[in-house]
């Protein structure tokens, strides 16, 4: 059966037809052409398809699109405004927190959410929060450095 669903993706209303069995991941990437989220395992193990669904981090390969009609979704494309990178994204570049870059959108998005919730995280808290996302290039140390260096901006924002 085909359903018409409406999502707010990165601030824009998008209406799309989906089948019962279509994953949010595939709808976002293939139908709405949002390519920041990546597909790499299709079973919730690698975390690269992570999106913010109504303000919560979820793996979009574990969500059926038809379930989330009316939801608000933010992907990495929705973080920066007018082509200017966010301070967190700049920190990722400055600290070399990416190599091939394939996992970077997921880590940036998850780190952003982590800092919103806890703008002063310890190493252990960062590790706990981000262990659901895989990086084979092994940029984990640099990711921790980038988060800590960008945390200042999130603390300011909170004040």
């Amino acid at each position: 059966m085909v359903h018409k669903i409406t999502l707010t993706v990165n601030g824009y209303k998008r209406t799309v037809e989906v089948k019962d069995n279509e994953l949010l991941l595939d709808v976002l990437r293939d139908k709405l052409k949002i390519k920041g989220l990546k597909a790499a395992c299709w079973r919730g193990e690698c975390g690269l398809c992570t999106v913010l669904l109504n303000g919560k981090l979820v793996k979009s390969c574990l969500v059926l699109a038809v379930e989330v009609d009316g939801s608000e979704i933010v992907t990495v494309e929705g973080l920066s405004r007018d082509g200017e990178l966010t301070e967190l994204q700049k920190a990722f570049i400055e600290h070399g927190a990416l190599q091939c870059g394939f996992c970077t959108p997921a880590f940036v998005l998850a780190s952003h959410q982590l800092l919103l919730e806890n703008p002063n995280p310890t190493d252990e808290e960062i590790k706990e929060k981000l262990s659901g996302i895989l990086c084979r290039c092994g940029t984990y140390y640099e990711i921790i450095e980038a988060i800590k260096s960008a945390s200042n901006f999130y603390r300011k924002k909170q004040r």
Binding site: Q99, C137, G138, T139, Y140, Y141, E142
Partner: peptide, 9 residues
């Protein structure tokens, strides 16, 4: 540094 960290891991 990235190669060292990544290769080590």
């Amino acid at each position: 540094k990235q190669q060292v960290n990544g290769g080590s891991l």
